[in-house]
Design a protein around this nucleic acid. Sequence first.
DNA 1: AACAGCTACAACCGCAGACTT
DNA 2: CAAGTCTGCGGTTGTAGCTGT
Length: 224
Amino acid sequence: MSTLIEEEIEVRKGPWTTEEDTILTHYIGRHGVGPWNLLAKCAGLQRSGKSCRLRWLNYLNPDIKRGNLTLQEQQLILQLHSLWGNRWSKIAEHLPGRTDNEIKNYWRTRVQNKQPSSSSLKEMSSQFSVPCQLPECIVPSGSVINISHQIEFPQHETSPNAFAHTCVDNNNLVLNGSYNIGRSGQDMEAFRLASMSAVGEGCWICNEMTDSLWQCRELGEMGN
DNA sequence: AACAGCTACAACCGCAGACTT
DNA sequence: CAAGTCTGCGGTTGTAGCTGT
């Protein structure tokens, strides 16, 4: 019987090998997931239970979707992040097949990094929250998801009435009511299109606001 | 072709809460 | 009820691959 210290020394770290993946996959296929520490030992893996759990949940699990996040998924992430902040696991619950790690990585690499860096620009962009009247988003297939029915509203953070609902444009761009607008041209163009077409669709946004947004973009570009 | 910088992603770490003894 | 253990979560880091020069 080995001591705790000896066991710790035996624990492997770093990238998983295909052999380890196979062992873990086969073991879970036969026995299902259980207490991860026990599972790691019984499977004969020199890994911590934690490591096994992470590998399975984020990579090996057959339910995981591969490939880039779809536009709807990206917009939903923005939507949910504006509601719940960095509660990645909660956000992941609403994106079947996507892991909290994947969503977290997406946010940090492709959303957060594109936001204005200076505090003044952040403040400025945060002012352009767009309250809309329709708590719905439209997916490209044409089906409608009622966000307010899917999401449980945090009691302290916002209420369904205060929640800035989702706007939709003719190109199915879902416009989040309160996420910060990035300074990239693409973001701004999407925002502009969405905001323009939102008028008359149950959403409101004034020309002054879109003008201000363009000014904000210019400021952002000046900051580069 | 070589190098530097950037991006995306896998994996680890520390912490907090849940659970067990 | 306290202490120990386990699990899950969010933050952070390391690195492979890609892109531009």
